[in-house]
Design a protein around this nucleic acid. Structure first.
Lengths: 197, 197
DNA sequence: CCTACCGATCGGTAGG
DNA sequence: CCTACCGATCGGTAGG
């Protein structure tokens, strides 16, 4: 006999992850109890512990799943582009779509990274560094002198991430400005402004 | 007999506030216990409660003291400027100096605002809105068409705050780039790029 | 004997 | 200004 419930094991894990991301985003990791999560999932704490060994594993899963998505869309944008200008457009639109589509996970990534223990935090930080590296390379392609000044190149990449990451505090997908429209504003500011750095 | 301890009451409150800001910035508001704070202050929990009625009052004091400073330097920058371009330079340098000088308080303001109850959070949010308003006016002065498009004007202000607020994740005052140098990069990007919006 | 899941409770610690 | 505590709740696990 086929074991029916094993079939949707991964699906149930995903549902828990999504609800956890929403609670962590709203109340913070420490502000969310496993009991809160169980209640939001309309089940018991024991069930949560059946799917995840610990609360920390849930936090790590929220973050790692999201950063893997970010890495994937970054790679896709670079692969599909013939020049740095087009790369910047595709990368920024891909990032913003993902930020909006997975807003809760993104907020958790930005707010609760410190609550991971050092070894697991290092895994996430390494993936973030790779994204920064990708952006630095595109910016250097747009403005070659950045290649000779590591400090300015890093600062320029951080100006870029500041603009898009800060959206988690104010951007609403149901507002007058959509993700692509905002991405294009960022691209305009960077392309026109970067020559002055 | 003079009541000696009353004389440095405010001073002791300030020391506690400063140490609390450091702990909140590092471990989060919920990740910091009052016992942690007492230990860091080399005293007892009871002493902490002698100077502040609750842990939440300490959080509010950290945030309100910081945002009052931000409002003061914003007002000073506007008052000392003859045109929007100069205003942007002074405002950005003032903000960055304060972000660096009060990095812990700034981090707490950005990370733990949700842990204030609605009434007190509203006070902080109102002060933040005033800062946003000031920036929007300067940006409209630099690029008049923003005055006719509330959505773009707000987005432009948020691009600006994103660039400078994101510094709390990466900027180190002992690095190769100082606060004024970074502020000038932000100003260049905004002044050159804003015409494209 | 297995997986899925429950009500109840564990040892410690939180803010006060 | 301290030790000794409180009601409650924490993350995680017991038996069945």
């Amino acid at each position: 006999m086929a074991r029916k419930q094993a079939a949707d094991y991964e699906q149930r894990r995903e549902v828990i992850l999504d609800i956890a991301a929403g609670l962590f985003a709203r109340n913070g990791y420490l502000g969310t109890s496993v009991a809160d999560l169980a209640q939001a999932c309309d089940t018991s704490k024991s069930l949560i512990y059946h799917y995840y060994p610990s609360k920390e594993d849930i936090l790590f899963a929220v973050m790692s799943s999201h950063i893997e998505q970010l890495a994937a869309v970054a790679e896709a944008a670079v692969a599909a582009s013939d020049d740095p200008g087009q790369g910047l457009v595709l990368l920024t639109r891909n990032f913003m779509r993902l930020y909006v589509g997975a807003a809760a996970r993104h907020k958790v990534l930005l707010n609760d990274l410190n609550h991971l223990p050092p070894d697991r935090r290092a895994i996430i930080v390494a993936a973030q560094r790779q994204l920064i590296q990708t952006v630095e390379e595109i910016l250097t392609g747009l403005h070659a002198p950045l290649g000779d000044d590591r400090t300015k190149r890093r600062a320029a990449a951080m100006l870029y991430f500041g603009m898009i990451n800060w959206t988690h505090t104010w951007f609403r997908s149901d507002g007058a400005l959509d993700a692509d429209g905002f991405a294009d504003m960022v691209v305009v500011l960077v392309r026109r402004g970067i020559g002055g750095l």
